[in-house]
Nucleic acid binder design. Structure first.
Length: 472
DNA sequence: TCTGGGGTCCTAGGACCC
DNA sequence: TCTGGGGTCCTAGGACCC
């Protein structure tokens, strides 16, 4: 059975209210079918893979510097621990309730993420990795085996991801990306009531397909259960304005007047509304344009008052940013540095940034470090307690197809340039083989009193053999 | 004491050009 | 006396995402 047939038949029942003409029949032919695969409480799930004793127990993961909560297990949510809450405010409550806490371990999460994505790619060639824990897929081009519905296919995929990685995922399906995102929300456990509206034959755990909803009244009822902020692209600001128009649910937003949406939420908002009506506006985006900037910035573990320490931090951040640049075979035309004191609290505030254009783009770490340190000298002011610094590389272009300068003097001698590239490649190879930070720049400091707080860091189970727990 | 980090897109307005 | 129209580029600010 071809999935396109199923997807089209189901999706064409989506109502088109609100004055917009429905898509012409010709356009409806070959409607897309999107899946959104989302890892459940991803960071928590990653920690649990190596700590099975934490399954069914409350767990949270903190942001960099152990600042605020960025992931919670279902049990932690049930305890009323809010997302994004500053850790110092909820710490007592959480600890007394027996919550296990982790500092974020991006080496682990990044590695687990790529394992999950590799499994998805075995199921479908059209995968677009949207974030560390989410991916869109286009299923309409697949030729399904006989008797295989999209729901069932998604359920198989879900089982396979869990079997191969230990990460539980949820899958939402719909004829637009926005509907697939919403379907994903309905696929989660806490929406069992809404899922029950779908005929049992289309029901699979952890999967929800809007395409299986053929009754417009049921569709209305389902969208009515979803808050307008559940819709992808509607944040707190827009939700506030929408509330003043009496729009509180996904259903009401779908039926909102186009001109008003266009005026106050720009074309982006209009796309969202059209997508809710089943008119696809956002492509899969499988080959996204290359990035425009690289930023590396961090808050300090303790406030910085010495310029020496700030210079070390800027050096360390630039080292990371340049590595990222080279990994993507890019070079930068422009270097920027920013520093700031805390946003909260009542100490004297200061923030500034500076940028410089380079005559010749580069990804050579020592050159970039020299520029960044000079920029810092220009914006540094004594007497402040700094909380954060960052570096930015922009004006990016491909290192492989770079335009050659007309001025040989600026281009650098061919041999020197080549030597620099080889040196960077060798340093990157060593760090890839033996772990980040094996080769470092002395200017980044040794003591690093400014480095971020990570009091609850788990081992790098998947990227360091020595950290793998022994199987007894 | 203690509130993350890294991106994208859109719009309005100004400068400038022909 | 009379003061166009259309285009590009840049920047700042706002909004969103995970």
């Amino acid at each position: 059975m071809d999935v396109t047939v199923l997807g089209r038949a189901a999706c064409s029942r989506v109502r088109h209210d609100g004055g917009t003409p429905s898509a012409p029949a010709a356009q409806r032919q070959g409607r897309p079918l999107y899946a959104l695969v989302d890892c459940n409480s991803f960071y928590v799930s990653c920690e649990r893979v190596f700590r099975p004793d934490l399954v069914r127990r409350p767990v949270v993961v903190l942001s960099n510097n152990d600042g605020c909560i960025i992931a919670r297990s279902a049990e932690a949510k049930a305890l009323g621990i809010p997302m994004g809450a500053p850790w110092f405010k909820v710490r007592r409550h959480a600890e007394s309730a027996g919550v296990t806490v982790f500092s974020s371990n991006y080496a682990l999460y990044g590695d687990m993420s790529s394992r999950v994505m590799r499994v998805l790619e075995r199921f479908c060639p059209d995968v677009h990795v949207y974030s560390i824990d989410e991916a869109f897929m286009r299923l309409d081009s697949l030729i399904m085996p006989p008797g295989m519905s999209p729901e069932r296919y998604a359920a198989c995929l879900r089982r396979e991801v869990y079997r191969r990685t230990g990460i539980p995922v949820s899958v939402g399906l719909g004829c637009t990306k926005t509907l697939a995102k919403l379907a994903n929300r309905l696929s989660k456990q806490q929406n069992a009531g809404a899922r029950a509206m779908v005929p049992a034959a289309f029901r699979y755990a952890g999967v929800f397909n809007f395409g299986a909803v053929t009754d417009p009244d049921v569709m209305d009822a389902l969208l009515e259960t979803l808050d307008v902020t559940d819709v992808w692209g509607v944040g707190a600001r827009h939700a506030g304005r929408l509330r003043t128009w009496g729009i509180r649910t996904a259903r009401a937003l779908r039926d909102a007047p186009d001109d008003r949406v266009r005026r106050y939420m720009s074309v982006t908002g209009l796309h969202t509304v059209l997508e809710l009506r089943g008119i696809s506006c956002l492509p899969l985006d499988d080959a996204p344009p290359s990035r425009r900037s690289v930023v590396s910035s961090r808050s300090f573990g303790t406030l910085v008052t010495h310029k020496e320490h700030m210079l070390e931090a800027v050096t360390a951040y630039m080292t990371r940013a340049a590595e990222k640049l080279r990994r993507e075979q890019l070079e930068a035309h422009c270097v920027g540095v920013m520093i700031s004191t805390p946003r909260h609290g009542d100490g004297p505030r200061y923030a500034d940034s500076a940028q410089v254009q380079l005559a010749v783009p580069t990804s050579h770490t020592p050159q970039l470090i020299v520029r960044a340190r000079a920029l810092l000298e220009s914006i540094w002011r004594d007497g402040y307690r700094y909380q954060k610094a960052g570096v930015m590389l922009s004006g990016l272009e491909s290192a492989v197809s770079r335009q050659v300068s007309m001025l040989p003097a600026l281009q650098g001698t061919g041999r020197g340039l080549e030597r620099g590239r080889r040196l960077m490649a060798a340093a990157d190879a060593v760090n890839a083989r033996f772990g980040r930070g094996t080769l470092e720049y002395a200017a980044a400091g040794l003591g690093r009193p400014w480095s971020m707080k990570q009091e609850h860091l788990s081992p790098r189970y998947t990227s360091d053999w020595k950290k793998l727990p022994l199987v007894r």
